[in-house]
């Protein structure tokens, strides 16, 4: 089995296990960033939309009143079933589900007006291929909204943040800096029209437990950050570290881009 297959399998296994937690997660269900998604994409009532790696279905659910149809895809069957249940319970009828791999999308070329992918691309083994595939399925002039963890351009800070994330979620594959995302998007024929950094503060203990860990991983992560450089601490900005109320921030990037006509 190749590394890429191993990595996808790991994502599928972990998110099968934690699916309901992601449906219920308030971090994923609400917030400034979802409001921003609507605002900067300016969705139209005749649009066909694809939400890649839909997870708990929160992005699809937010867009449902604003577009014609949404296909929500995910690699993980249990995640899709949990999202579908959540959406059906809310009486939404314009969202359908497909089990699909972000790097090999099962759609004809130039089908969608909008593609979204929110807080998931760090799981993908080949992000450039995902961006290329997104470009392929978008209509000319179609819009792509991406939100994901973003790394510092400072390599030592970036390496630490990657290690910190991977200890908690071994299916975390690779986050990128803004300059790396820009390069990938431009290479795939996109023009960036919006970019902003979103800083999210997480209750540390909840964040670790959502991935099924106990005290051992909590202690390991606590110690790791205790011993980190001041530059790293400035990036992760821990508060009340070592207490049950500990929190820290992670940095996301939200990029709006259009496929060149």
């Amino acid at each position: 089995m190749s590394d890429s297959k191993d990595s996808k399998k790991l994502s599928e296994e972990r998110y099968s296990k934690f699916a309901q937690g992601y449906v219920e997660s308030q971090t994923h269900a609400k917030g400034y960033d979802l409001d921003q998604f609507i605002k900067i994409s300016d969705p139209q009532p005749d649009w066909q939309m694809l939400d890649i790696a839909t997870g708990g279905g929160h992005t699809a659910l937010t867009f449902a009143p604003h577009v014609k149809n949404i296909i929500a895809s995910d690699l993980t069957e249990n995640m899709l079933l949990a999202a579908e249940k959540n959406i059906k319970e809310k009486g939404i009828e314009n969202i359908t589900f497909r089990q699909a791999d972000a790097e090999n999308l099962p759609f004809d070329d130039e089908q969608f007006d909008l593609v979204t992918c929110r807080i998931a691309a760090h799981h993908f083994p080949n992000a450039q291929k995902f961006v290329q595939e997104t470009s392929r399925v978008l209509k000319p002039g179609g819009r792509f909204l991406l939100q994901d963890h973003v790394l510092s351009e400072d390599k030592s800070v970036a390496d630490f943040a990657e290690n910190f994330e991977t200890l908690r979620d071994p299916s975390h594959n690779h986050a990128f800096s803004l300059s790396a995302w820009t390069h990938m998007l431009v290479h795939a024929g996109f023009e960036i029209y919006h970019q902003e950094e979103i800083i999210k503060r997480h209750p540390f203990i909840d964040w670790v437990k959502r991935q099924g860990h106990g005290q051992e991983v909590i202690s390991e992560l606590e110690q790791l950050l205790d011993n980190a450089s001041e530059t790293i601490k400035a990036w992760l900005s821990p508060l009340e570290w070592g207490t049950p109320d500990a929190s820290f921030v992670n940095h996301h990037i939200l990029i709006g881009s259009d496929k060149k006509s």
């Binding site: 791999d101 090999n104 099962p106 004809d108 089908q111 595939e133």
Partner: peptide
Amino acid sequence: ILRCPNCVQ
């Protein structure tokens, strides 16, 4: 609009 993910590219 569905296609074989192996062949469509």
